[in-house]
């Protein structure tokens, strides 16, 4: 059970949060221009890394804000938390 440092509220228990899958998968601006394969890439393909992964989290039972998290899925270590819209750190 993690302690998550919400960028808006501070440290809270994991049970206040909802995980939202892989981060930085931007919705295509012009979906109709995409081939089936390209759209499927956006829609279905996720990395599901064992190791350092960029994720989206939502403070669902709190401020309801979405934010990004860098987490090592092999040991659940949270390496970094940053707001939506901010660029991911380069490793």
């Amino acid at each position: 059970m993690f302690v998550i440092n919400c960028p808006y509220c501070g440290e809270r228990d994991q049970q206040e949060f909802k995980a939202g899958g892989e981060a930085h998968i931007e919705r295509p601006k012009q979906p109709t221009e995409l081939s089936d394969d390209e759209w499927a890439e956006y829609l279905f393909m996720r990395k599901n890394i064992k190791g350092v992964q960029f994720e989206r989290w939502n403070h669902a039972h709190g401020c309801r804000k979405w934010f990004n998290m860098v987490r090592d899925t092999s040991n659940d270590e949270i390496k970094l938390i940053y707001k939506m819209g901010e660029r991911p750190p380069s490793e």
Binding site: K18, G20, E26, R27, R56, N58, A60, R64, K65, W66, M84, G85
Partner: peptide, 12 residues
């Protein structure tokens, strides 16, 4: 939840 997600992340 879904509407908030799109508003905050795709269409801020």
């Amino acid at each position: 939840g879904k509407l908030e997600d799109y508003l905050q992340t795709e269409w801020p």
